[in-house]
Simulated assay, not measured.
Amino acid sequence: MGDHTASDVASTASGVGAAPEGGWDVESVAAELLRCEDERREREPFTDEWPGLDLDTGYAIQDLNLAKRLERGEKLIGVKLGLTSRAKQQRMGVHFPFVAWLTDAMVLPVGDPVPQGKLIHPRIEPEIVFVMGERLEGPGITCAQAMSAVESVWGGAEVIDSRYSNFRFTAGDVAADNASSGAFVTGPIGLPPSEVDLALEAVLVEVDGVVVDSATGAAVQGHPGEALALAANDLARRGHAIEAGWIVLTGGMTDAVFAPPGSSTALHFTNLGSVFLNGGEG
């Protein structure tokens, strides 16, 4: 999974947003976000009190919290993109994608219900998922270069969550919150990228037996490979690369659907099989 250490990641978080504003700084926001996650406690966005919490400061907070996760025993296994589709951007009032971290603590075993006891207000979205065969390091990565580094393609579901009330946030807030990370699960079928047209790969979103949404891979930056390239280039700006063996969630193809206790969600992909999630118990 690469040779990232907590100190390596934490070093990228230093020197940004150092002057406290509204009582908050990088260190205190990072600590509060982890407390909110551990306590299943939502709050108002930090930018209500700290308008200087911009995107770069949010990423510094995100990197600091990754270091904290690694220190407590989690393993870095990949990255995720958030808000890559127009539907998601319009819903959240944000107009560009975000990159965030995946650790092994976010893996949801196949067949397990939505972990209601860990999450605040979970929502489910369908994703095209890559497993990387080669290291991918920006800047300047193109879609074709990105796809050449992919070993296999999967359908998947991300169970997003947010530490902010009603998913209300700015770009800095959501970057700090690891792009609303929660949990994720991959489907039953993995294919070489040459065997599936990802721009045309479709998904049907079914909730409690009713199809409520659909999309194709083109909803994700025109092609999921573009999202992968974007991630590699954005991470290069932050001093990181995508490592061989990592998992990459390329972003929700549709708007997310609520996943309350007792619900049933199915994501039916054209070639990548189906992913089933039940809402579990409250």
Rank of each mutant, 00 (worst) to 15 (best):
W246S: 06
A31R: 10
A229Y: 00
T265M: 10
L70A: 02
N233R: 07
E195K: 15
G190P: 07
P261I: 11
T12V: 13
P261F: 08
I141D: 00
S194V: 13
V129K: 00
V207H: 03
L277E: 02
A87I: 09
V29G: 00
A87C: 08
T265P: 02
L64V: 05
A176K: 01
Q62V: 06
G239M: 04
G172V: 01
V211R: 12
V210I: 14
P122C: 11
G140F: 08
I189S: 05
P115H: 07
G23Y: 14
H4D: 12
P51E: 08
P109C: 14
R168E: 14
T186E: 10
D112Q: 14
F98M: 11
V114M: 05
L108S: 02
G15M: 12
L204D: 12
H95N: 15
R163V: 05
E158N: 07
G187Q: 05
Y164W: 09
S263Y: 07
R35G: 08
G280T: 06
T142M: 09
A30D: 04
G22H: 09
T216M: 11
S11A: 15
V131C: 04
R163I: 04
E195M: 13
L191G: 03
G23K: 10
D48H: 13
L66Y: 02
W24N: 10
V153A: 02
W246A: 03
A231W: 00
S181T: 13
V114S: 03
K88G: 15
